[in-house]
């Protein structure tokens, strides 16, 4: 779904929650006259289950789209090995192969991206523009942060991840 220039991608979980509650509501309204009398506010509430995640996704994706050019300009291309705790807050660009993908279903994907020098976690707090899979060669643009905000090893808070080569399989 596209709103303005922003491609909105609600998570599968959000859609599943909406579908489940729709089924519940349908079943309850068929069986109970009391529920039918409440449909005037139950149906808007049901749609809010879908509208709120879409709105949040739209806001986060439009914000990421706004800051991506700034990162594109400022980020330096580095090897993974050069990223360390002294670079917290620095914009970086890395190129590597996606070795693992987690939490895509929640629209909070976390990738393990490796190049010849090492591997690093890349966390994204919204859905990516492209569907990135294991073995894809990608370019990651983001900021070096600590894994748990104030502690933990350096990871990349991803602003943009795009495939620069298709997976070999």
């Amino acid at each position: 779904m596209k709103i303005g220039n922003v491609e909105v991608k609600p998570s599968i979980i959000s859609i599943a929650v909406f579908v489940i509650f729709t089924v519940f509501l349908l079943a309850a309204s068929v069986n109970s006259p009391d529920v039918r009398s409440q449909l005037i506010w139950l149906i808007p509430c049901l749609f809010m289950l879908l509208v709120i995640p879409i709105a949040l996704n739209y806001m986060s994706r439009s914000q990421y789209a706004d800051i991506a050019p700034q990162y594109e300009e400022e980020a330096k291309t580095v090897r993974v090995k050069l990223i360390n705790e002294n670079m917290i807050g620095k914009p970086v660009r890395i190129e590597g192969v996606v070795e693992r993908v987690h939490f895509q279903i929640l629209n909070r994907p976390q990738y393990l991206v490796a190049d010849r020098s090492g591997a690093i976690s890349v966390k994204m707090f919204t859905s990516p523009d492209e569907d990135v899979k294991v073995n894809d060669v990608v370019e990651v643009l983001g900021q070096v942060i600590r894994r748990y905000i104030v502690v933990g090893d350096p990871v990349i808070n991803c602003v943009s991840i795009r495939k620069i080569k298709k997976s070999g399989n």
Partner: peptide, 13 residues
């Protein structure tokens, strides 16, 4: 010493 983590990483690679 503040950069030791980075130096150790270079060693380990």
């Amino acid at each position: 010493l503040t950069g030791q983590g980075f130096a150790q990483k270079l060693f380990a690679s």
